[in-house]
Computed example of a mutant assay.
Amino acid sequence: MLEVQNLVKSYDGDRQKRKRGSDSSSNGASQQRVFAVNDISFSVKPGELFTLLGPSGCGKSTTLRSVAGLETPDSGTVSVGERVLFAAGASVTKKVNVPANKRGLGMVFQSYAIWPHMTVFENVAFPLRVMPRSQRPGKREITERVHRVLETMELLQYADRQATKLSGGQQQRLALARAIVIEPSLLLLDEPLSNLDAKLRESLRFELKRLQRDLGITSIYVTHDQIEALSLSSNIAVMRAGEVVQLGKPRDIYENPKSKFVAEFIGTSNFIDGTVASNEGDLHVVETRDGRLILESGAHMPVGTEVIVSIRPESVQLTTERPIGIENVWEGNVTTRAFLGDAVDHVIAVGKHEIRARCLPHVSHAPGSSVFLQMDAGKLALVPVD
């Protein structure tokens, strides 16, 4: 469906500094290039919701805007189906840059960007009414399509209301309705829920997933919110400093991070430094300063390699008696705990490590308690030292 190949977008870092009033070099030295997007490639299959996830400044919005035609990359190709939307660079024989208004893509921005002087109906109908005459639907079809989309978004009863008199959640649904009424081949969403409060954001998250699944619209979603990415996505590309550092399905990225950055950014992890003592197939033995750990990993680290063992807090089980015949059992003392409603977090001191364990709400160990930590070999991830 969507193919992005070797996309590069950079700008002149020194020039940007001079614009901000910094001193420029007087010796004519070459200016440093700053890469917002640095040679990234990915593909999105029909019907997928593909998420670009990463911290602020990692290049995810620049990538999305390059697909939309709102940014002009230095090089690379962007194509939807058989249609090339952008192509430039040394390997390209013919440059292509289709204007944003001719790409036929739907886009929802972080701000709702609705027209305050129009009603709900008029907001949604506007993209259809400004289509080229040869493609523009008739008045009856426009009315039918707008009503159908508003009904899907549960906004039909507000069709005659001024758009600014809707609640925040309703305005966001209106922005979605306006984007999908043109029946785009690809829907682009740039942090569309970030301006909503936590409860409404959670509600719309599930509604957005239902709509995307029911309508079958291929979508690219940009967010820095790991929960949004995990709950919505078919596939996730984790970005850092303009590059894709890991690409895969949400569960695989969460359970098998390929780097400490990914493990830290997506969820919460305990990190234990160690050295690979032995390995046989996927089975690794890692020696740490507080004991050895046995784990299963497809990373295949050679013996003697310094590594980091990552384990999620919910994968650490606590007991007051030592389990018999089980590997990866450490003893420690609870230093603090916190009740979270649906869970209880404990911090346990084990030698020089502090390990966080997330337990069911009925499991609670008081600070100062001696406990045994059990860590399942299949739940430990082996990541290289950055």
Rank of each mutant, 00 (worst) to 15 (best):
R312M: 01
L340T: 06
V307E: 07
S364E: 08
Y158K: 13
Q317H: 10
K94A: 15
L176E: 05
A88Q: 06
D74F: 06
T143L: 10
R161L: 10
A36F: 05
A237F: 04
C359K: 07
T51P: 11
T72F: 00
Q226K: 04
S10N: 10
R173S: 08
A29S: 14
R129L: 08
V67M: 10
E48Q: 13
V344M: 03
Q32G: 08
A163S: 15
T218L: 04
G89F: 01
P323G: 14
E280M: 08
I272Y: 04
R322L: 08
R178F: 03
L70Q: 11
G242L: 06
K94D: 13
P73G: 09
F42K: 07
R129T: 15
S26N: 12
V84T: 14
E202V: 13
S61F: 02
L283P: 02
V37R: 06
D160F: 02
S167L: 04
G106Y: 05
K60L: 03
Q32T: 13
K9I: 07
L52Q: 09
S91L: 07
L380V: 01
G351M: 05
Q16E: 14
R133N: 06
A88R: 13
F372Q: 07
L193M: 07
E327P: 07
P367K: 00
P137M: 09
T335V: 08
T319I: 01
L193I: 03
L176V: 11
N101W: 03
H365D: 05
P302C: 10
I308E: 09
K60Y: 02
Q317W: 04
R213Q: 13
S315E: 10
A277Q: 11
F206W: 03
T72Y: 01
S25R: 08
A125V: 04
S219Q: 02
E154V: 07
